[in-house]
Design a protein around this nucleic acid. Structure first.
Lengths: 220, 220, 220, 220
DNA sequence: GATGAATGAGGCTTCATTCAT
DNA sequence: CATGAATGAAGCCTCATTCAT
């Protein structure tokens, strides 16, 4: 059979193969995510990950350069999710307090509530593992901080407010992220109080709004 | 030589020995702290710790049951420091906003600023390592949260305020701790901007005060 | 290449793999047996075992959970051998003195003579190592004692004999096992006198038969 | 004070010192014996031994060259005890069956029953530890075998019996020791059946006597 | 003589990674 | 492509032994 004919015949096969590859890639990543979050990065051995994904260790290494690569890819994923859900919300917020608030709630309710594993990985398991990972973390972190800074500056602009001092916006952004982190982490602990979590998110947001306002210059 | 003379001479010897023992214990603990903070708990091998402390591995094991024990002892230390510096400040704060503020600043300026490694260990490296460690962490964490809750409730009492809802104080406490954590962590990153750190602390505090006030019931 | 052809070719490959795996498992077990017997359980380090089996340490751990597991598997093996060679002989002995004698000789000549290492491991190296091992040992030991007790009771039944006292059969069984143990152990020492070992076995058996008869009630 | 006077004065002190040294030596040896027997040679660390003897590790090393030395000294002790209690009994036995029997019972009742730890050490813990120990073991073992052989030969002489074959006495001696070993070991297990142990010893002895007689030449 | 802190070699075990099939 | 057996470096920990006081 000619190569051409084979290609023609194989084409659907190739497509299927492609799909299967993609699916397997995602399966492995998802299993790694689960294990990193539940057992920790170190305790989650490559073999455990492989077993959970129902593939062999070799297969994991076919799709990912090494263990660190899994973590980096995961961070990319998380970054993408966060920005998709939250960053955009911040960046297109209508530069009003209520818009700002809406974006914050999106983070709590859409992200933390639904993907606690991602929180655990981003804020905990990926810390201090290696230079490469650290670079990734910093990049993502910076993006988020930048998003928040942007939202704050547009908000203040629009409202005609000014910052109490030059450091204020940065401190706010960092503070907010810190709150997010811990409140989100608390979500992991408060699984049994899930009915109250919406209220928790709202309260946290009120706290933020109050905090933000107290960092605008008084003389206005 | 008379027995009396010998005692006089030996007594200081024994005392010196005791001091040396204590010193070595502290040296090892300090080296472990440094390495845990800078490289992470896992990457800090017992051999590295021993080498840094300029003792043999065996000596480390003479003073500490195992690696986990080092971490637990470190957490105890940290707990002691935090409560010494901050907890007391909170608990004896004069139940005014400015008292509350003073306590918060103490945490930033006296603790985070001076002991960023302790922050790193307490908030990061000690997480998810083992049951024993987790128990220690929780105990310390709970103490801090309790301290803050107490300060908040006394503050609100005195001022005649009421909480927006029952969850509010808890959310505040957690939020505050989260801010502390991240801002303190930021201190690790911002080593080169240390001149600005006092301002950072003040801003964070303003943020907190604003947040706290926005969680009191409106109808008053 | 057609799938069929491939299967034909792969099938033996898979079979060969399986064989190789089994062979390696047995090789490692055999090397462990040799070293346990010749150097003792403790002195036989996992690295020595690996080196002797010409594999890496990791490979040993691929086939066996840990060092204790090697010992347990070895004991299982030994138990199987003993009962295969001796236990059955005892249990199907025709309940005559000569049948009883034949079974005893089988133990000496077929087992002790040919597998002195197994004797060393079972009676010496496996003693007092761990709970798990102790359980295995006891199980095997009990089986053997039970086999002997059974043979004795059938013998006495058939011959119309009765035991001197209720403890007698148990003492006999234990005594016999003790003799086996030491005589077998002596085989290890008397390697250079192997030509005489058949005589040793026969004499030991005569000793046993005499002993057994002296524990039947006199008044018959 | 003159040197002479001092000596006169110190003399009782020196004697006391000597007594204390001897006592301490024995204490350490006894503690080592207990631990070797109960936990095994390897598990009994020098520190455990020291702690049990209520001295420091250094002191143990003052009295004994090293750990192996402890075992060797212990074996010497055991050898001395065995020969004192049993060997002499055998060697001065009046060369009758009942004399022979009496000696055997002495071993069971005076030695095994009262010093099961010594049995454990001699027959188990001292095996396969090192060349030096092995030499000691063999020496003691040979002495015992020789004692038994002597008793047997005198017995057979006196009774006008002859051995079935040249190997017979050696086989008997070894068999008897094997029985002793295992029955004695069984004593460790049967602690709760101590009331029956006298019967066990008697039965074992009957077994031996029967065995011995079945190894004399038939044609007499 | 006695003490006990210090040493460091060596043992067991795990696990990321490779590679022949 | 997938498999999984094999590797070996590296980690934690124990313990016999030494030696300054």
């Amino acid at each position: 059979m000619s190569q051409l004919a084979k290609n023609l015949e194989n084409s659907p096969t190739a497509a299927r193969r492609q799909r299967e590859r993609e699916a397997r890639y995602q399966t492995i990543l998802a299993c790694a995510e689960d294990l990193f979050a539940s057992e920790g990065y170190h305790a989650a051995s490559m073999e455990k990950i492989a077993r959970k994904a129902e593939v062999s260790v070799g297969t994991v290494y076919f799709y990912f350069k090494n263990k660190e690569d899994l973590l980096v890819k995961l961070l990319n994923d998380i970054s993408f999710h966060i920005r998709e859900l939250v960053g955009k919300e911040f960046s297109r917020s209508e530069a009003t307090l209520s818009g700002f608030e809406k974006a914050g709630l999106a983070f709590f309710n859409e992200f933390c509530l639904k993907h606690p594993e991602k929180i655990a990985i981003f804020f905990r398991e990926s810390v201090g593992q290696s230079a490469e990972v650290e670079i990734q973390r910093k990049k993502i972190f910076d993006k988020i901080i930048t998003d928040i800074l942007g939202a704050l500056s547009r908000l203040f602009d629009k409202m005609g407010w000014t910052f109490k001092n030059p450091l204020a916006p940065e401190v706010m952004a960092v503070s907010i992220v810190g709150m997010y982190e811990r409140v989100a982490y608390q979500y992991l602990i408060w699984q049994d109080r899930s009915s109250e979590l919406a209220q928790v998110g709202q309260d946290a947001l009120d706290f933020i709004v109050g905090g933000v306002q107290s960092l605008r210059a008084e003389s206005e």
